[in-house]
Simulated assay, not measured.
Amino acid sequence: MLLFIALANTHYFLRGPSVLGGYPHAGSAVDAAVTWLLATFVDGRAFPMFGLLFGYGVAQIARRQRERGARGVRRLLWRRSAALVTVGLTDALLFFVGDILAAYGVLLFLGVWLIRWKDRWLLVFAVAFLALNALPSGDASTISREPADPSMLPPDLSAMLTHRVPVALFIAALGPIGFLAPFAVGLWAGRRRILEQPERHRRALTVAAVAGLGAAVLGAQPIALLLAGIIEEPGQQTLAWLASLHGTTGTLGGLGYAALISLLAVRLAGRRRPIVDAIAATGQRSMTFYLMQSMTWAVVFTPFLLDLSGTLTVLGTALLAAATWAAGVVIADRMRRAGWRGPFEVLVRRVTYGRREVQAT
């Protein structure tokens, strides 16, 4: 997930004489191929997987609290929501304005009302919001011709704060709309412990993986081929529908990725290896290394720092994203071996549960 999020974010920093959907045109054939790969397998596919896992985690928290006989699950989740919003907005203002942690904090603040819903209504709700998001809206993240603006690449500290505040608040307020469907599915799946017990749900997970990823790949092709410069740009109305198709099938792809990874876990059960352990350690510290990515983008792309947004290509940013993720995996594995938890995971857990709970675990 963290690798895909890094790949999805970095190309939006690039500048060029002609930009479409965050990808500069007139690049090399290799850049075009990388653009096609990212638009097909990553863009709009990573964040729905994040939404599903987020809802799944909320279901786990609620179940554990009930098993303990504890009350006040809603207040506990609201404290977690406040921590996410605070960390997310800080990240958005200082490092990466496209941060989504604050949006997930707002999603959790609203989503706590769903934890008592019956399974049937969760699925109806998810389908309804998926259908709502399928309506064409001129999704700027996919079809915009605008290059990175001052909120992404501020010329100085004053401009950074001035431009980022409204953008960060806008993303935090409206971002949850696009994540409600996978969040509700995650709540439903978490109640059944589907991802934790994949051997008991192998058939359903196989169907979800094949259907979800198949739909995501096919639904991405019009936009992916357009961004790669292989086909001509259609009219604005057609383009809006194609962008909607890309986003809607991306949600299905996010669910498919989660199912595929869960099936892979069955294969890996009982034969853990160093690489698997290192990636698992990264997942256990996912917020810390997500924020490390934001700090990396700030250093590399900010005009008054390294200012490489006009130098790197699509291939260059993809390699940077992969290298940043790989470095995080190495660091996380060393932290695992040393018995160190992620500092931001400790912070959020302390806000959510209190000091005693953190020390006990």
Rank of each mutant, 00 (worst) to 15 (best):
T282W: 07
A278G: 07
G214F: 10
A211D: 10
Q237S: 11
G253S: 14
L213C: 08
L205S: 15
L227R: 01
I230G: 00
A159K: 07
R203C: 12
A159C: 01
G178A: 12
T206N: 09
V217Q: 04
L169V: 12
Q237I: 10
R285M: 04
G175V: 15
D277I: 08
R202T: 08
H246S: 13
L264M: 10
I194L: 11
A280L: 03
A168E: 03
A220I: 06
T162I: 04
I261N: 03
M160E: 14
V217G: 00
A168G: 05
V217H: 01
G247V: 09
E196L: 13
P176K: 01
F289S: 13
F170E: 06
L263N: 14
Q293G: 06
R273H: 03
E196K: 14
L180W: 11
G250E: 15
F179V: 09
E196D: 14
Q237M: 07
I230V: 10
A280S: 07
T162R: 10
A173W: 03
L226K: 04
E233D: 13
I171Y: 02
G212H: 05
L260R: 05
I223D: 01
R192Y: 03
P155K: 15
R192H: 11
R193L: 13
I230Y: 04
Y290C: 14
R200G: 11
L252C: 11
R285K: 02
A269F: 12
A204H: 08
W188R: 15
A189W: 05
L260Q: 06
G175T: 12
A278V: 14
W297N: 00
G229E: 13
H201K: 03
Q284Y: 02
A269L: 07
P176E: 10
V276A: 04
V300Q: 06
L242E: 13
A215M: 10
L161W: 06
A189C: 13
T296E: 08
P222E: 08
L205N: 12
V167K: 09
E233Y: 01
I223G: 00
R193S: 13
S158H: 12
T249I: 03
W188L: 15
G190H: 09
Y290M: 04
G270Y: 05
Y290F: 03
L268C: 12
R200M: 09
A243N: 05
A208T: 13
A280N: 04
M292T: 03
V299I: 07
L180I: 15
L205W: 05
P198D: 11
W241R: 05
G229A: 14
G219I: 04
L291R: 01
S262T: 12
E196R: 11
P274E: 05
L255K: 15
R273M: 06
V207P: 00
L252G: 04
V276Q: 04
I279E: 02
H163K: 01
A228W: 02
T288H: 02
E196C: 03
I231F: 00
G270S: 10
A216T: 04
V276N: 01
R272P: 00
F301T: 00
R193G: 05
T296L: 08
V266F: 01
A208I: 05
I223R: 01
A298N: 14
T248C: 02
V266Q: 04
D156P: 00
E199W: 04
